[in-house]
């Protein structure tokens, strides 16, 4: 059984294999018929316990462009005890002869647990604060496409690192491929202990922005302010937001990324988000190619994606 649960547990070679395959898949988007028969007859189930239109649409389109059938299974997680409902739901889905289950769940570890109970290949589309591997893969794919290499690339991830599965997955993938990673944000959201993973920590956006090749701006959750992680949204924007003033002191070819959905003029100014250094829309396109590559590679039987221990 082969799954994609997180980037921590797969090898550098597997990450590169996914990125290379995704590059080939991207070409399909330029054809008259944007569809190939590789997964004809396979069934992909999108099992979403959390609302997510973008990720679900991206997986759905990826599966359809590979000629797989797609079933969208939206579950409210509030009513039932989570552990029970997850396994029960999964069994129901398996009874429909699914080949892949794409799962989004508010609890960290849900994807891993699911993978132990089903025969289908499980793809983690975000579990709690743990991992969101396909988002990180599409971010890394975009960096590699624009900067041609990942090794020695200096990447800043800015925002709520503490609660971000996107940040965690990005840093695992980037470190495996030899990038230098700096985490930026207020001390309440960027805990010191992250430095043990081999990344730099910075509380000074003005300083870091001058040094990096890529900046990945995370969405700031407004409800964090209620828990006093930072004094106000406006203060957060002033201290850590990507704006015209910071653009002036940054490298001319700084790559600006955002996993979406954006809070315009909070973590990123509108003019920056729509500016020439931004690749936010390309990230969306690349997301489909990367998810096609993951579905395609998991449909084989090479045992390369090992069950994370």
């Amino acid at each position: 059984m082969r799954h994609l649960i997180d980037l921590e547990s797969i090898s550098k070679e597997d990450i590169i294999k996914i990125l290379d395959t995704a590059k080939s898949f991207k070409e399909i988007f330029t054809r008259d018929v944007k569809k190939v028969p590789a997964l004809r007859g396979k069934t992909v189930v999108n099992l979403f316990f959390e609302a997510s239109t973008r990720t679900r649409n991206s997986f759905e389109l990826a599966a359809k462009r590979l000629s797989a059938d797609v079933l969208n299974f939206n579950v409210s997680s509030s009513s039932v005890s989570k552990g029970e409902s997850l396994i029960d739901t999964a069994k129901t889905i398996e009874a429909m002869a699914s080949d892949f289950i794409v799962i989004r769940h508010p609890s960290s570890g849900a994807a891993k647990m699911l993978s132990r109970h089903v025969k289908s290949a499980v793809i983690n589309a975000g579990d709690g604060t743990h991992a969101h591997p396909t988002q990180a893969l599409l971010d890394i794919f975009t960096m590699r496409e624009k900067k041609l290499k990942i090794k020695n690339l200096h990447v800043a991830i800015v925002g709520d690192i503490l609660h971000s599965r996107v940040a965690r997955s990005n840093l695992w993938g980037l470190l495996k491929l030899g990038a230098k990673v700096t985490l930026v944000g207020p001390p309440t959201l960027v805990p010191r202990h992250f430095s043990k993973l081999g990344v730099e920590i910075s509380y000074n956006m003005d300083k870091t922005i001058q040094e990096v090749d890529v900046v990945n701006m995370l969405r700031i959750q407004k409800e964090r302010q209620d828990k006093n992680y930072f004094p106000s949204i406006m203060e957060y924007a002033r201290s850590f937001g990507m704006n015209e003033k910071r653009m002036k002191i940054a490298k001319k070819d700084l790559l600006i990324m955002h996993p979406g959905p954006m809070n315009r003029d909070i973590e990123i100014s509108s003019s920056i988000a729509d500016g020439p250094n931004s690749v936010i829309n390309e990230q969306v396109t690349n997301g489909v190619a990367v998810r096609m590559a993951v579905l395609y590679l998991l449909s084989g039987g090479d045992g390369k994606f090992e069950d994370p221990a």
């Binding site: 080939s24 190939v36 590789a38 590979l66 395609y296 449909s299 039987g301 090479d302």
Partner: peptide, 23 residues
């Protein structure tokens, strides 16, 4: 042209080969 995605034996292969670009 790379024909991998159109092969009729994808289900039977031990592993799915890396697809090269069709240009």
């Amino acid at each position: 042209m790379d024909i991998t995605l159109y092969r009729d034996d994808l289900n039977k292969l031990e592993s799915n080969p890396v697809v090269k670009e069709t240009l």
